[in-house]
């Protein structure tokens, strides 16, 4: 039993932390979030830094995901390494994403069964028609893996979004650092991927939940750091407000939730990386704890900061919105608890 990262993994973390702090100070994240959300040079930079290297194992990605959460990395990294790249295989040349939600399928599991977007066979190849919703980084991605119905079964297709920009519809979103949009496909050419959709989507789900749990730990840590810093320096009634137990105890609870969530997030990453039999349980447990620690932790931080934490100018709300994005990914904490109950109680 050994539950710690290796020296190499710790070095990777330190390097990622430095790069992120340098590349994405809070005002730059704010400018991107309040602008169109696109940082044109970052994809190439992430490629050069090795963040998109297909050789990275899930524990290394877990380290990067946590730091990306801490800095609120506003780049299409998650949609690539967690969702699309493992399906496509190899290093992604352009930013790819995955489109699975539509009128017939609300989750990755459902998408492995039946979807509404359909594939028609034309003389020159496949054509996809229908609307895919809640597609992460839709406006940023240049390619999409689309789950579509081919008669009585689903299959995975690659659509070149860069060549068909008319299909991409950005939507107004809560979290401006990781936007979602729609793909409105209308006889859009697609290339069928030689991948068994059931196992591929199940693997994507496990991988994405594990990495998002790590990202949530980073989000919660940043919110807690902001709150602690404020509680140390802000004075009322001639004392730092962190000396009042009404403030400090809530932050102690936020720390507790984070400590538990972080343990489960790392463990989930390990279980998925090693294909452990407990992987399904591990990602569900991690997702429940991550939502509690990150959404709840941000709420405690907003309360500790008082009025300032409620403003648009303070960075905290962006963490809160990312935490909510994570909690809403492919379901909800109550859905994950239902999955756990099925494992425990049948």
């Amino acid at each position: 039993m050994d539950f710690a990262f290796s020296e190499e993994q710790d070095m990777l973390r330190a390097a990622a932390k430095d790069w992120l702090a340098d590349r994405y100070p809070a005002d730059r994240v704010a400018a991107l979030a309040d602008g169109d959300g696109r940082d044109p040079g970052v994809w190439r930079e992430l490629t050069e830094l090795g963040w998109l290297d297909p050789e990275l194992d899930l524990l290394e990605l877990a380290v990067l995901a946590e730091e990306a959460g801490y800095a609120l990395l506003p780049a299409p990294w998650f949609s690539s390494v967690a969702l699309a790249a493992p399906v496509l295989g190899g290093p992604p040349a352009v930013p790819p994403t995955l489109a699975w939600i539509d009128d017939a399928a609300g989750s990755l599991r459902e998408a492995a069964g039946t979807v509404a977007v359909r594939c028609d066979h034309a003389v020159d190849g496949c054509r996809l028609t229908g609307v895919k919703r809640a597609v992460p980084d839709a406006a940023y991605a240049e390619a999409a893996v689309v789950v579509a119905q081919d008669h009585d079964r689903v299959a995975l297709y690659r659509v070149e979004l860069a060549a068909h920009p008319e299909t991409v519809h950005p939507l107004t979103v809560v979290d401006g650092t990781r936007r979602i949009g729609e793909l409105r496909l209308d006889g859009t050419p697609a290339e069928r991927l030689d991948v068994d959709p059931g196992p591929a989507l199940a693997a994507v789900r496990r991988r994405a939940l594990a990495l998002l749990a790590c990202e949530a730990a980073g989000v919660a840590q940043r919110a807690l750091d902001l709150a602690v810093e404020h509680a140390r320096s802000r004075t009322q009634f001639d004392r730092p407000i962190g000396s009042y137990q009404g403030v400090s105890h809530r932050l102690a609870d936020a720390y507790t939730a984070l400590a538990l969530a972080r343990s489960l997030a790392y463990r989930a990453a390990w279980c998925v990386a090693t294909d452990d039999p407990a992987a399904e349980e591990a990602v569900s447990s991690a997702a429940v704890a991550a939502a509690r620690a990150s959404v709840g932790g941000c709420e405690s931080a907003i309360q500790a900061l008082g009025g300032i934490g409620f403003t648009w100018d303070h960075p905290l709300h962006r963490y809160y919105k990312r935490a909510q994005w994570i909690a809403a990914f492919d379901g909800s904490p109550s859905r994950h608890r239902a999955d756990l109950a099925a494992l425990i109680l049948g």
Partner: peptide, 10 residues
């Protein structure tokens, strides 16, 4: 609060 988070003594 005090030893882990470094908040001031209550």
């Amino acid at each position: 609060a005090e030893r882990v988070l470094g908040l001031p003594r209550s």
